[in-house]
């Protein structure tokens, strides 16, 4: 930072005023809370999904399709997709905001990840719905 001899305060505000100037957290709490809610939801959903696909590994097409298209599994898959991609874009946003210090790169990265999350989630939802409806 600046040479200690050249220090001066050119912002004429009290310390409290400066702290207030940083703003409230606004939707920061909701961001934090959504990360927790989605992780709680993923505690059972991730276990179910990982062991299900581990069990399905190497299965023929008909068996894999039958697994995914049942109403219970399709419901759980849709829930998993919604929660995973919500958790994912929030998490990557935190990482990007901590380590990427150039404004435009950070903003571009965060928005690109959000767009990719949304598109991946939509593609997965459409796939599951197609499987569930066509059987």
């Amino acid at each position: 930072m600046a040479d200690a001899k050249n220090l001066k305060i050119d912002i004429m505000r009290s310390f409290l005023g400066r702290a207030r100037g940083l703003g409230s957290v606004n939707d920061g709490f909701n961001f934090w809370w959504m990360q927790r809610l989605t992780s709680i939801a993923l505690v059972p959903l991730a276990v179910w999904f990982i062991f299900s696909v581990a069990h399905l590994a190497g299965a023929p097409y008909a068996e894999a399709r039958a697994w995914a298209s049942g109403p219970v599994h399709a419901t759980l898959l849709l829930a998993l997709i919604a929660v995973v991609f919500q958790h994912m874009h929030l998490g990557i946003q935190v990482v990007a905001e901590d380590y990427v210090h150039t404004d435009w790169i950070r903003t571009t990265l965060v928005l690109a990840v959000k767009a990719a999350s949304l598109l991946l989630a939509l593609a997965a939802v459409i796939a599951v719905l197609k499987l569930a409806i066509t059987g």
Partner: peptide, 9 residues
């Protein structure tokens, strides 16, 4: 994961 679901569909 998405590839798996889309391929299945």
């Amino acid at each position: 994961m998405v590839w798996f679901l889309v391929a299945l569909a």
